[in-house]
């Protein structure tokens, strides 16, 4: 798939928002892939964390927001602790979640009333909390 690149598109408003919220410089990432290699849930992600950073830097907002990477991220901080450039990748994932949440456009938040009793007994509390948070943050 082709991308058009220009001054207005790369490192655009979206990229800068992610940088502002996370406090991280996306230019610092040199795409070594260590974050993705060590991530315990990268097998279930559409894009590896390093790809999310690359896409964000190039201003590919749509592609980033449509992927499941940052929702899969459990904030275990393995990526952050191993990044050779000292980037806090978990913060970047959180920043992207916040960009989405602040738009308040997502309609996939949980309606607790609609969940079955059986499911509510099985599901971990943290999952419910993050489910709520998607809408309330």
């Amino acid at each position: 798939m082709k991308i058009e690149i220009s001054r207005g598109k790369v490192h655009n408003e979206f990229s800068q928002k992610v940088e502002e919220i996370s406090g991280q410089n996306l230019f610092a990432c040199y795409q070594c892939g260590n974050c993705t290699a060590g991530c315990p849930v990268s097998f279930a992600m559409d894009l590896g964390p390093h790809q999310v950073i690359r896409y964000s830097l190039l201003g590919l907002e749509k592609e980033v927001l449509e992927c499941n990477t940052f929702w899969m991220c459990a904030s275990c901080l393995q990526c952050t602790s191993r990044c050779p450039k000292g980037l806090d990748i978990a913060r970047i994932m959180e920043a992207i979640r916040l960009v989405i949440l602040r738009k308040k456009e997502r309609l996939d938040h949980l309606e607790v009333a609609e969940l079955s009793e059986e499911f509510l007994e099985r599901v971990p509390q943290i999952a419910l909390i993050s489910g709520f948070r998607k809408f309330t943050s």
Partner: peptide, 12 residues
Amino acid sequence: EDTLTNRKVELD
């Protein structure tokens, strides 16, 4: 081409 994103890149 940006082989890091596997995208063909075009720019002026």
